[in-house]
Computed example of a mutant assay.
Amino acid sequence: MIMLKAYLLRNLPEKLCYRLNRCVRSVSVKHKKCDQTFRSYSTRPIAPAWNVLFFGTDDFSAESLTALCNEMKLLRVVGHLEVVTSTKSRKPNPVQRIAQQENLAVHPWPLESVPPGFHIGLVASFGHLIPKKIIEMFPLGVLNVHASLLPRWRGAAPIVYAVLNGDTKTGVSIMQIMPHRFDVGPVLKQMACPIGPHETAADVQTRLARLGAEALLEVVRHLPHSLDDALPQLEDGVTYAPKVTPALYCVDWHKMAAADVYNLCRALGHVTSNWHGTAVRLAQPDAPPSAPSPVSHLSSLPATAIRGGDAASSRTPRRALSTESFMGEQSTPGMVRIHRAGARLRVMCADGSWLAFAKVTIIGKKPMSAIDFYNGFLSKVPLDDWMLT
């Protein structure tokens, strides 16, 4: 009986041999095509060591690659590991650096064919659509670490759009890559995590990179059953996160509330606007108020004191700086005022509340403080012209 099982294992088609691995006991034999070794069992199956071709480029994908390297060093479910990455830049990307440190073979993208002997392709933040012919060269197909809870935020920038839209929860999805379309394949595993109200996209990316590596290892450790348990994505709740373009950074002060601008800055690191024909970047915003407060407790102060931002206004809490009003002035979205004591540039938003920024940058120049922007730009034009468009 054992000899019959060994014969079947050696001669099964390559795409089927891994499935029989979990059904056979007391056999140790190597498959003649894919070099998969089936080891002896006692009372429960032992997962095989898969040969993995990893696709990635950036810090997010580097976290998953590091986890796979550790599995290989510990002689667990990764038997052999090589890397595919984009090599356009002369400077090595994070995945290339790890590959060099771990002496992993690196294959440049685009890939014409898959080197022989690989069982599965694993992808994390790769940014390229993998052709059908490449996918079909892997007996177990290709799996992707996607930084959202699919089907929400399919596309290239799921973390940015989750933060930009004020989502309070996100996560990672391990999914099968399908030909011709991004992020539509069945999902093998999802893990969720919260998004704090003041976390940036960079903060969330760091946490999701670790979570994605953890979820990926869980899936690989339970292959091929993970593939059998994959579920198709729901048709409801599909949203898209396309590539970030320069237009996304631009603020429309007449349409965007303070919370919207704040979330946009959290997502992108800064926002852009226009000061009398000059492009400017605004960064490091204070948290906006939970609700507009057009009349503040400073309304009893003289108008000149509020305008100038003297010592009296410095008693206002940091969050309240964005809600102060200016006596005797009509509030117009895009209107700019300076808060000297707090060293903040405040801008009126569409909902009637102010959003305060600590840093201003004229495109092409070094970042400056709000006070420096006042000295170099605001002070040179009449107060009525202090407007961002």
Rank of each mutant, 00 (worst) to 15 (best):
K15Y: 03
L65S: 08
L211H: 10
S331P: 01
L20K: 03
Q330I: 15
V271I: 14
C69D: 02
L16E: 15
T316E: 12
L143H: 06
V77S: 14
L75Y: 02
R25I: 10
T304S: 13
P288S: 08
T43Y: 13
I338M: 13
K189L: 15
L74D: 15
S226N: 08
V271C: 05
V184K: 02
E235Y: 08
S290M: 11
L53R: 05
A105L: 09
H198E: 13
D236W: 11
R319F: 11
D286Q: 05
A99K: 05
S379A: 14
V172D: 02
P45S: 09
A287I: 15
G277N: 10
M348V: 13
Q284H: 07
P289G: 13
K359M: 12
E102Y: 15
V172H: 03
A305G: 02
R22I: 03
V84H: 00
Q233H: 09
R281M: 10
A49S: 13
L378K: 02
T323C: 10
V142L: 10
F377Y: 15
F126C: 06
L74S: 15
D35W: 04
V204T: 07
P186A: 15
I363Y: 04
V78T: 06
A47P: 15
K365P: 02
A291D: 09
P302W: 01
L143I: 15
N165T: 07
S322V: 04
I98H: 02
Y240L: 06
G196V: 00
H297I: 11
S331E: 03
P48C: 10
P285Y: 01
M327E: 09
F60H: 01
A305F: 00
G308N: 14
V187R: 00
L140Y: 09
L12K: 09
A162C: 08
I363W: 03
T361H: 06
A215L: 07
A62C: 02
T239I: 01
I130Y: 01
G364M: 04
V295D: 13
Y18D: 01
A343G: 12
L301Y: 13
F38M: 14
S125A: 13
R344N: 02
P292Y: 04
R307Y: 04
D58R: 12
M335C: 12
Q205I: 05
F60G: 00
P197S: 06
P151Y: 07
I135T: 07
R266H: 04
L8N: 11
L143Y: 07
L164W: 14
R181Y: 07
K255Y: 05
